[in-house]
């Protein structure tokens, strides 16, 4: 896992031009995509792509497996929904509010979980996320099992009508690019350098005077905030925040997306999210609940046969 992670980052250091080209090509594709592909599908893929990328920051670059990331996606969705529908703020402020809520929740989760590692860390985050699920189910404000419905897309900055799917797509695309840039910058920053050191050899990082828990906590909050940014944006796209978003299934799905796409790769989580969202869309009406079984089989095959994930394997091919 570590080997591959560092190869990804070192590939960046050694060949910035190649990765810049990939960035530019994908950016251009992102700009023209809504004219070729159904925009709602693209928006869903981008939201989950950002969600998985945020998760990957934590698992791939810090080595912490959070099993409660749905809480951040979901809570941000509800908060954004309430702000936009009930408080009447503009969509961009709704996204900011959702992101801030997820960051605060991330700080609380992080404070409680960060001292533990491995399975214990995963279990604490899962338990906390289940509490959030329970609250979402019971509270009147969230609409319980009906979900939080009828969120208007509103006018961006009070000017641009977001009911136009193309306009909405570009907002989602912009949000994705911002989130993606934040992740990229975090990994390639003085802070990211210490994160790498902690992942590589935690006792040594401590012995050099770094309070590793603080670094992990900040990374956790960034990851939670960006997961929230994805969730808030998703609520605007579908005009709905639902229990599915806070359910532990979603926490599991993001692990699947990240591993399938390629852990600790730059574009892996986006690729993984796109594959999963495509499967869900294409198969749901054909095979019904068998889609879960199919995803399970894919996951097993991925773990057994191409552990580096789609993008990880591609990178390995290019290197050879």
């Amino acid at each position: 896992m570590n080997t591959q992670a560092s190869h990804a980052s070192h590939g960046q250091l050694v060949k910035p031009t190649r990765s810049n080209t990939v960035f530019l090509v994908l950016f251009a594709l992102g700009l023209v995509a809504p004219f070729a592909v159904y925009p709602t599908f693209l928006m869903k893929a981008l939201c989950f792509g950002l969600f998985a990328s945020a998760f990957n920051l934590l698992l791939g670059y810090v080595g912490l497996l959070s099993f409660g990331h749905a809480a951040f996606l979901g809570v941000a969705g509800y908060v954004c929904g309430m702000m936009v529908r009930d408080a009447g703020v503009t969509p961009e402020l709704g996204i900011v509010a959702g992101t801030a809520a997820a960051a605060s929740l991330g700080w609380v989760f992080g404070k409680l979980a960060i001292r533990r590692t491995g399975i214990y860390f995963a279990m604490i985050t899962l338990a906390l996320a289940q509490m959030v699920f329970f609250l979402a189910l019971q509270m009147k404000a969230t609409g319980g099992e009906d979900g939080f419905q009828g969120v208007p897309r509103g006018h961006l900055f009070g000017l641009i009508d977001m009911n136009n799917n193309i306009a909405m797509y570009y907002l989602v695309f912009a949000v994705f690019c911002i989130g993606f840039f934040v992740i990229h910058r975090t990994i390639h920053s003085p802070f990211g350098q210490i994160l790498k050191a902690i992942r590589e050899n935690e006792p040594r990082a401590i012995s050099l005077g770094y309070d590793v828990d603080k670094f992990k906590l900040i990374a956790f909050v960034i990851s939670a905030a960006l997961a929230g940014m994805a969730g808030a944006t998703k609520t605007l796209v579908f005009q709905l925040a639902s229990l599915t978003d806070v359910h532990w299934h979603t926490s599991g799905e993001v692990v699947l997306m990240t591993l399938l796409g390629g852990l600790a790769t730059v574009f892996g989580p986006l690729a993984g999210a796109t594959v999963i969202v495509t499967l869900q869309n294409e198969l749901a009406d054909k095979v019904g609940s068998w889609v879960t079984v199919i995803m399970g089989v894919i996951f097993v095959l991925c773990v057994l046969m191409f552990r580096r994930g789609i993008v990880g394997e591609l990178q390995a091919l290019v290197k050879r």
């Binding site: 910058r185 003085p190 350098q193 900040i218």
Partner: peptide, 15 residues
Amino acid sequence: LQRKLGTEFHFWKPE
């Protein structure tokens, strides 16, 4: 060396 620089928490600065 990095701690002396005081930017170890600066996740917004380039490498």
